[in-house]
Amino acid sequence: MLVLHGLLGSSRNWLSTGRDLAKHYHVFALDARNHGKSPHVPEMDYDVMVADIIAWMDGQGLARAAICGHSMGGKTAMLLACRHPERVERLVVVDIAPKDYFWVAHRGEFLAMTELDLGSLTSRSEAELRFEARVTNLGMRKFLSTNLTQDDAGTWRWLINLPALTAALPVMEKNCLTAADRYAGPTLFVLGGRSRYAEPGDHAIIRHHFPAAQIEVIADSGHNPHMDAREEFVRLVSGTI
């Protein structure tokens, strides 16, 4: 199973859930381009991310795999399944739908990161305080700060390619599927009941593109059901498809 993280995340977000899934699958958690330890490049859209996954699979000698993607990773996974169904054993999409998004909050988060003076920064906790004017949610401020790292000289820098991701944000929010895109293979959507990323009104468009889709809603979860309800998430992913 290949696990694809969300925007501004990394494979590290899946360490605990990945270990649980590893009881059922041989799990590879990958860093998307411009995230984590992957290369920084100017091109950033879903087509190139799908090409990255196919190239990685080819390099590993993997003809097929189960693909599990969260948020941005879920959009990548959906496009991969529709355009390269022969490479996808089964598809798991986590709290995202095949539709356009526009989140004002994302603009505030990216502004907060862009405005951060790394030269005067002394700690991640200080960064979280500086984010507060634009990012009201404490959990999100902590999440953003996970993308900061120090070099050997003690200088802070971004792990993510912040300029490329900022420029690509409108593309990342758009639906990457066309009306003709279909994947008929086994598909599971795991959605958070407290999340606004995928709602009951989206079920019809999900089934338009993924006619075999099983849609499961974890009532007490937000946008991160793999973290908010890890045991239930792992049960669903490992036992229902």
Rank of each mutant, 00 (worst) to 15 (best):
S195P: 09
H203N: 10
S123T: 11
T178R: 14
N13G: 10
D228P: 00
H226C: 06
I205L: 14
L2S: 09
W103D: 10
E128F: 04
M72G: 01
H26G: 11
T114E: 15
V237F: 03
S11L: 11
H26T: 13
N147Y: 10
M172N: 10
A198K: 02
S10T: 10
A180P: 05
W158V: 09
T178D: 15
G9W: 00
E86N: 02
A167Y: 00
E232A: 15
V27Q: 01
C176L: 09
K174D: 15
D202F: 07
T122I: 12
T178L: 14
G192E: 13
L188A: 03
A167H: 12
A51M: 08
P98S: 05
L188K: 01
D151Y: 01
L116K: 04
Y197S: 08
E128N: 03
H226N: 15
V88L: 05
L129I: 13
T166M: 04
L21M: 09
D117A: 12
M172K: 08
N224L: 09
M44V: 02
M78V: 05
W56F: 15
H26L: 12
K23C: 12
F131P: 12
G73L: 10
L21W: 06
G239P: 06
N161D: 14
A127Y: 08
A133D: 14
A198D: 06
Y46F: 11
L79N: 01
V237N: 03
R196W: 03
K37I: 02
P225I: 09
Y46C: 04
K99E: 11
T76M: 14
H106V: 00
C82K: 00
P200F: 02
R83H: 03
A22D: 11
E231S: 14
V237K: 00
G154S: 03
C82I: 02
A164R: 06
R182Q: 14
G119L: 07
F143P: 01
S238N: 01
G9L: 00
N13F: 06
V237W: 04
D52E: 07
M78W: 11
Y183H: 09
T240V: 14
H209Q: 07
P42H: 00
G18P: 03
L121T: 09
C68F: 04
E173K: 05
A66C: 01
A55M: 04
A168C: 12
L129V: 12
D45L: 09
I67Q: 05
L21S: 05
E128P: 02
F189S: 07
D202E: 05
L111C: 04
Q60Y: 02
Y183R: 01
N137V: 14
R194S: 02
R130Q: 15
R182A: 06
W103Q: 13
R64H: 07
G185Y: 07
F210G: 02
Q150R: 14
A184N: 13
D58I: 01
R134T: 04
L138M: 14
G69E: 13
Q214N: 11
I96E: 11
D151Q: 08
N175E: 04
G193L: 06
L188Q: 00
W14F: 15
